Amino acid sequence: MTIKEKQQELVDEFAFLGDWEDKYEYIIDLGKSLKPISDDKKTDENLIKGCQSKVWIDARFEDGKLFFDADSDGILPKGIMSMLVSIYSGHSTQEIMDSDFDFISEIGLQEFLSPSRANGLMAMTKQIKFYAVAYQLKK
């Protein structure tokens, strides 16, 4: 599945949910399915700056594709990271760099989040792009 297809699938899933309480619960449930990263990956280097909660993301490059692992000490950020990891993990650096984050607006997630959480979301998306650029340069 392409990144765009995964994004659309998530947009469609959110469209079936009624109000924001249902969407909030869905995000929390997604976070429960996120495999936690090991404690040795919970370093300052992997900590996303700008998030209200502690959010860690680690990336590895295998067979021309980037794979992400993430965790958070907050239930909502963990759910958001679960969405981002499921969409972007397993794709090439070029695919990630060429992608956008328009699906976030389509879901309406930014309007739902407080300003500080919206800033955290932007920090998460920037970090994914940063890893793609960094690994692209290493090639």
Rank of each mutant, 00 (worst) to 15 (best):
134 A>I: 03
116 S>Q: 11
49 K>Q: 07
76 L>I: 15
39 D>W: 05
56 W>I: 00
35 K>G: 01
123 A>M: 12
136 Q>I: 00
34 L>T: 00
68 F>P: 11
44 D>G: 15
8 Q>V: 06
89 S>N: 14
26 Y>T: 02
18 G>E: 14
45 E>M: 13
61 F>Q: 03
18 G>R: 08
101 F>P: 01
79 G>N: 03
115 P>H: 10
48 I>R: 10
17 L>N: 01
104 I>E: 02
70 A>G: 11
13 E>N: 14
78 K>H: 08
97 M>L: 13
132 A>Y: 07
98 D>L: 04
137 L>Y: 02
6 K>A: 12
83 M>E: 05
101 F>S: 09
127 Q>E: 13
129 K>V: 11
109 L>N: 02
5 E>V: 11
138 K>V: 05
45 E>D: 14
119 N>R: 14
133 V>N: 00
76 L>E: 01
35 K>Q: 08
87 I>E: 03
1 M>N: 07
61 F>C: 06
138 K>Q: 09
79 G>K: 03
75 I>K: 09
109 L>F: 03
107 I>Y: 02
137 L>I: 01
31 G>V: 11
88 Y>F: 15
5 E>T: 12
87 I>N: 08
112 F>C: 04
96 I>E: 03
96 I>F: 11
60 R>H: 09
49 K>S: 09
6 K>Q: 10
122 M>F: 14
50 G>N: 07
128 I>T: 14
137 L>W: 02
45 E>K: 14
56 W>A: 10
96 I>P: 04
134 A>C: 02
21 E>L: 10
139 K>R: 07
135 Y>W: 10
33 S>T: 13
36 P>D: 11
41 K>E: 07
33 S>V: 06
82 S>C: 08
82 S>W: 04
92 S>D: 00
3 I>A: 10
34 L>S: 02
71 D>C: 08
115 P>L: 13
81 M>C: 10
63 D>E: 10
32 K>Q: 13
118 A>R: 13
84 L>M: 15
52 Q>W: 01
84 L>G: 06
81 M>L: 15
87 I>S: 11
127 Q>P: 03
133 V>W: 02
74 G>V: 05
130 F>H: 13
49 K>G: 02
69 D>V: 00
47 L>S: 08
84 L>T: 08
20 W>S: 11
95 E>M: 13
3 I>W: 07
59 A>K: 12
85 V>P: 04
71 D>P: 00
132 A>F: 11
124 M>H: 13
24 Y>A: 03
17 L>D: 01
72 S>I: 01
110 Q>L: 08
121 L>H: 09
38 S>T: 05
135 Y>M: 08
112 F>I: 05
69 D>Y: 04
57 I>M: 15
57 I>E: 06
120 G>H: 04
63 D>R: 07
96 I>C: 07
50 G>F: 03
127 Q>N: 10
8 Q>G: 05
